[in-house]
Design a protein around this nucleic acid. Structure first.
Lengths: 336, 336
DNA sequence: CTGAAAGCGCTTACAG
DNA sequence: CTGAAAGCGCTTACAG
């Protein structure tokens, strides 16, 4: 079924059908009704490729995970932001495309892929690292929105959860509970997000007038549980333990918890712990884990709106920050 | 940049460039090299819409979650299968498209969307329920592969994890540990997957010569934690507890655990529990949760290959079963 | 208000 | 081995 057949069935020209499909006003109500009825009956749906070819607009948004390939869907942050983004983008009239084709000329060449599909815009969600191919896309004429990723291109904008505020909420919470000897477990040293959190944490400690003990600031290999275990184990063996620890991810925090339990120590009695991310497991562990939650739904919805404005030339870029929330559970005790 | 300009730059015809792009053999090596070099220099990538329009083949696979809209990416089963599927489909030369556009004529009309994008095939991953719109797609001429979803169309095939085997492994494990009074916590009564697991469980209990006590077979409202809590609470209040419980999901199992702990009961000392899914939280709870793991990676990879064969007419449909694995942790004790 | 025609960027018989 | 031309299914000035 195509537009030509619809036109024949309705006894009108192809142009007229096209106008009706696109809500042009200069069509008589009578022909309009007749044509719409036939469209309804036949279930006709215009070919996206023909339409894209003619208009240079695909109504497609490219989704890119800026991190190691093929782990994206198991990355809880990515997935939750994406869920909200997809929903909102759908309301705005767009579908989503994921680049996976490995036969593509240069397999990491996002810009070429975007051109290939004539996407109207891209969302780029931060994983572990920043790739050069992302920079190329950012600097191109394709509207891009970064989530937890600083984009500087003229057609780009970005959203960040406020990493300084994350750190500040953690430090304040520790402070009010009376903890003064604070440690930090980070992800790998080249992780942008981990480094931002660490910098904010140090700044916040200093602004509360406490001292920063460098022995208690250690990086793991990655964001995962065994790294947190290893770092805590190292502290336990050295006999020099912080009284309260902020971990750059919940999994790191859970690893640290495991090491402490193994040594018969109490949480928060001996060491208090705060994680970051609020993954589902936090609610089911023992003790349950106090953590920082980023408002992923808000990030996704805002990303959709900002991208839409960028596509329609209603925005000149810029950036926006989303406030994180402290989720108090058992792992560092509580006041009162 | 388009094929015409490449042709001009190389001093050949558009046809020739096209042949080279598509690896036709009847082109002289000399022109081929010249053209390839220009393509390389310019970074030219052919327009997908023009190609799709000309060939009626989009190299796009539609991804559909057969369940409540807008929860898909937070559904761990979906997401893990999808990760493996995407990777394999990429190797086979396809990209993935997600339908989200809500302005679409009928918003659940998957078949129309598939036509609109001329997708080469679809993967449909089972969520909670089966929608009529899925049946329409299944019966259409578009190749479809179902994951944990029985598809019967002439261009369809499906993959299932063996629910009977899941149940059988659970019952055998309980049996060998000496438990004889077995209970079951299901999801809502209209959940296909939950019902299959229950049926298999009952069959397995009977085949081990044990008796099925209907008081210990209860459905929750859904797959989530509060449902499991509610069911166990009800048993606790009635004073009539099974000795060992299989829950249709890990979250249901964790809810049951919470209720038991609240009543000061020991797991597995008083009640043994086995969950289903092997979500990440199982490793971090106390006690850690014994569960059944579906081989989601294998499901994803197989789904990709089967769909590829369906698209290329190499397969006449059919179905395939993937073996589940029992993951033994602490929640029902262990032998030896 | 309606329609004929060119054009979007490819592919594919077909002729040479 | 190479190229001219029709066709894929739309949209969009433009003429009437």
């Amino acid at each position: 079924m195509n537009i030509k057949r619809i036109a024949e069935m309705a006894g009108v020209s192809v142009s007229t059908v096209s106008k009706i499909m696109n809500n042009y006003s200069d069509v008589s109500d009578k022909t309009k009704q007749r044509v719409l009825q036939i469209i309804e009956q036949t279930g006709y749906s215009p070919s996206n490729s023909a339409k894209t070819l003619a208009t240079r607009k695909s109504n497609l948004i490219g989704v890119i995970f800026a991190g190691e390939l093929n782990v994206e869907f198991t990355h809880p942050f990515f997935v939750e932001v994406l869920n909200a983004f997809k929903k909102q983008m759908g309301v705005l009239g767009y579908d989503l495309i994921f680049f996976s084709n490995e036969k593509f000329i240069h397999s990491g060449d996002y810009f070429a892929r975007c051109q290939h599909f004539q996407v109207d815009g891209c969302v780029i969600i931060s994983g572990q690292k920043m790739e050069p191919a992302i920079r190329e896309l950012d600097q191109s004429s394709i509207p891009c929105i970064g989530v937890d990723l600083e984009l500087t291109g003229s057609k780009s904008a970005y959203l960040m959860s406020d990493n300084f505020q994350i750190a500040s909420k953690v430090v304040e919470h520790f402070y009010l509970l009376g903890y003064r000897e604070l440690g930090f477990i980070g992800s790998s040293a080249d992780s942008d997000i981990s480094n931002r959190r660490e910098a904010g944490y140090i700044k916040a400690i200093e602004s509360f007038g406490m001292t920063v003990n460098r022995d208690w600031f250690v990086h793991g290999e990655d964001f995962f549980e065994p790294s947190g275990y290893a770092v805590m184990k190292q502290w336990l063996l050295s006999g020099n333990l912080p009284r309260a620890v902020f971990a750059a991810s919940d999994l790191l925090a859970l690893g640290a918890v495991r090491a402490l339990k193994e040594h018969g120590l109490q949480i928060p009695g001996d060491v208090a712990i705060i994680g970051c991310d609020d993954i589902e497991a936090c609610k089911y562990t023992s003790p349950t884990l106090t953590t920082i939650r980023q408002n992923k739904e808000r990030l996704g919805v805002l990303a959709a709106h900002m991208l839409f404005d960028l596509i329609n030339g209603q925005s000149a870029g810029g950036s926006f920050t989303v406030e994180p929330a402290l989720i108090v559970r058992e792992s560092c005790g509580s006041r009162g």
